[in-house]
């Protein structure tokens, strides 16, 4: 099934481009470390060297003479990691809340939906800023905060899937066989509700990466970790004289976010073929 899905994705030009971009980022985050093994915080050349000025710093240096390429490679890892883990947190919370609400309905559902609405009303980035600022900036708090602010769409989606699926024949049959609630939810309904959740998760990674960059841009990044947002935030004061310091990590963010968006759309086309037919 996974092979078939991959084949379907590769046939879709946009999704294939997304996969290629993603692969490039993964390579940068892993193999790039061997290529640029230095400490991204360490001074390695004259400050504000432009890209191409010196072969030792192919992408130039920042205001403090730190190597840009090393920083960008480190940022790739941070972005992917925080994007993935926070999305897992959001998916976990969203699936749990949506499944409970959709399966049990009644007051459980009413209560959980109220909570979901509350989290959708709060300006999400402001809440993330509050959480990270109060619980001290670090990779862990950023990941957690981004996860906490991004679960509501998943919860709503899973809830509506559960509401529809719980009435279906195969669920009735399993219930008649004496299957308990937990097994019904996990083994019968959830697998059928997952495809759209996967699409949302791919798109969510893109948003999470942007949120992480924005947090570190505001100075709420982990003080020991060089991420793309940190580089942009540090280069901000001199952006007019040396725009490449902010420019390069920004382009990196655009490419990775684009990759996950394309992938999400490709997955959407592959997993919900009836939507594609409607489009044309």
């Amino acid at each position: 099934m996974y092979l078939a899905l991959l084949k379907e994705l590769l046939r879709n030009r946009a999704a294939a481009a997304g996969l290629a971009l993603l692969l490039a980022t993964l390579l940068a985050a892993t193999l790039g470390r061997f290529w640029f093994p230095g400490d991204p915080w360490e001074m390695s050349g004259a400050p504000m060297l432009w890209p191409g000025d010196d072969a030792a710093n192919p992408l130039g240096t920042d205001l403090m003479g730190r190597d840009m390429a090393t920083g960008l490679v480190s940022g790739a890892g941070v972005s992917l990691m925080i994007g993935l883990v926070s999305t897992l947190i959001a998916a976990g919370a969203g699936i749990t809340i949506g499944a409970l609400g959709g399966f049990y309905r009644g007051w459980t559902d009413a209560f959980l939906m109220r909570v979901t609405e509350l989290f959708q009303t709060v300006p999400q980035f402001v809440l993330a800023v509050v959480l990270v600022a109060i619980f001290k900036p670090s990779v862990a708090t950023a990941t957690f905060a981004i996860g906490i602010v991004s679960w509501p769409p998943t919860a709503r989606l899973v809830r509506s899937e559960f509401l529809a699926l719980r009435e279906r024949g195969f669920v009735e049959a399993a219930r008649a066989l004496g299957m308990g609630d937990f097994r019904l939810i996990v083994t019968q309904i959830l697998p059928n509700a997952l495809p759209p959740v996967i699409v949302i998760a791919a798109l969510n990674i893109a948003t999470a990466i942007q949120t992480e960059a924005a947090l570190s841009f505001l100075g709420l990044g982990d003080p020991n970790v060089m991420s793309w947002g940190t580089i942009i935030g540090n280069g901000r004061e001199q952006v007019v004289d040396a725009w490449y310091i902010c420019g390069l990590p920004g382009i990196a963010i655009v490419l990775v976010v684009l990759a996950f968006n394309l992938l999400g759309e490709g997955l959407n086309d592959a997993l919900n073929p009836h939507l594609r037919e409607k489009e044309t």
């Binding site: 893109a206 942007q210 960059a213 942009i232 901000r236 920004g250 655009v254 490419l255 684009l258 394309l262």
Partner: peptide, 22 residues
Amino acid sequence: VLVTYALPTFWLGLMAIVLFSA
């Protein structure tokens, strides 16, 4: 539209300052 979706707002603002102001 596709590219615009991926642009981080704060970065776009900085680049706009470089181009249109500076």
